[in-house]
Every structure is written in C-alpha cells, then in structure tokens.
Design a protein around this nucleic acid. Sequence first.
DNA 1: TCTTGACTTAGAGTTAACTTTAACTGTTAG
DNA 2: CTAACAGTTAAAGTTAACTCTAAGTCAAGA
Lengths: 116, 116
Amino acid sequence: MSLYTIGQASEEVDLTPYTLRYYEKEGLLPDVTKDSAGRRKYHDDDLQRIGFIKCLKGTGMSLKQIKEYGDLYEQGKAKFKERNAMLEEHREKILQEIKTQKKYLKMVEAKIEMKI
Amino acid sequence: MSLYTIGQASEEVDLTPYTLRYYEKEGLLPDVTKDSAGRRKYHDDDLQRIGFIKCLKGTGMSLKQIKEYGDLYEQGKAKFKERNAMLEEHREKILQEIKTQKKYLKMVEAKIEMKI
DNA sequence: TCTTGACTTAGAGTTAACTTTAACTGTTAG
DNA sequence: CTAACAGTTAAAGTTAACTCTAAGTCAAGA
C-alpha cells in the first residue's frame, strides 16, 4: 500500500489524527494531498517525513524549530548548508543530552543502592 | 555557608526563585524553614533534594510523580520498598530513553551524511 | 433508503510547568 | 531617615503541544 487515510497514517506513525492535522496546520507537513471528497491522503514520503519529525521532536527540538528546518528543506539544495548546520547543531545537543541522561542514570542508581 | 536565601539558592541550583516557590507550593519541598521576617532559608539538604528533583525531572518524571516519590520519602523506611520500586522503574525508563536517543542520533547523523 | 462511521472545518478547551503581577513587608547602605 | 532591594502572598497570565467539540459531508453496507 502507498496511500493512507488519516486514520491509517495515525496508526502507522503512532500519532493521533488530531496531532497530524495540528502538525499540518502548523506548517510541518506541507502538500498533504486530498481526495475528491476532501479527505487527506498520506503518501509513503509523508510518513517518512513524519518519522523524522518524531525523531527531531523526541530529541527535544520544538515544533517551531522543526518547521524552520522543514521550510529550509522545501527550498531544496539552495538551503542545504543552513539545513545541515541546523542538524549538526542538533546532533551536538543530542550527544550532550545522552551524556546528561547517563549522569542522571548514575544518580538514580546510586540512590537505589543507598538503601535508606 | 549552609543557609541560603531564595536568591542564593536559585543561583546554586540554577532555577528561578519563582520556580522554587512553585515547587514548594506543589509540595515537592516540604519543611522549607523561614526566618523571623518570613523569608525562606534553604539548607544544604534542601539543595540536595532540589538536585535530585532536577535529576528526576530531567529524565522525564512529571512533577506529580516526583511529589509522589517525595511523599514516600517523607514516610521514611516504612515506604522504602515502594520508593525503591519507583526508582527502579524509572531507571528502566531512563535506559530505554538513552536507547531511543541513540537511535535518533543515528537518524540525524544519517541525514547529515545524506548530503541532499 | 437509511444509518453508520470515518472523515472535514474552525475554534474552544486542556494540561504541565512555569512566570508574572500587584500590593505589600522587612533589611541595609548612604 | 529614606531609598533601594530582596523578599512575601494570592492569583492571574503565558506557552507549547496537543485534544476535543460541534456541526457538517460523504461513501458503503443492510
């Protein structure tokens, strides 16, 4: 299959239809096509894009920043540098976050071992 | 030094005075003492507690859950088991989260390398 | 044909976690 | 003595990210 209703897409990407419409309204998903009855039709590349949005969001990027990234993406290779700079900066942020999580993990483990 | 005004404590733990009062109002910081003029006085163990709150919060625990943990903590060793069960469950959540972050890191790195 | 169910929209409501305001009090430096 | 400053309170306001409601449309099955 390569076309999905909003219900099917929402199952596929594990987001509610509400959220998918919200993301679209916020400009994160441009060009979602509609059928003759006005119902959204998601393509595989839409799902891929949503997958990457989930990745950025899951690593702490705000929807506003994700939109900025998406807008650069829309402008193709003209904005390749800016886009990649954003990703590289974000990569550093993720690395830092993993470090912090590991530190916090140790704190929690120490507390568990403390037994008081 | 071992006593801090709210301003000093807020610098120490890198949270605003607003946030410290808010945490207290939400029951996360019981027994914050006050001086004769009614001003909060933070002790070293208050700062330690705030540090652990930041650890739990930074690993995705909600303030509501953090309060639950704190409430168990207040009840001493009677609730030791429950408390540690909470921490162990949270430990798993952190481990899972680190895994997810690493997966997302790879996705971002792949996108960077893609060069399109 | 009728009804069921998934969809549509605009706009209102919710939640968590702050953050600010207003009006006030007490401490300290000049 | 007084002005500036750091603190106090209760309550209102803010923000991000959803989440839901109301009113309606459309297609498919009994």
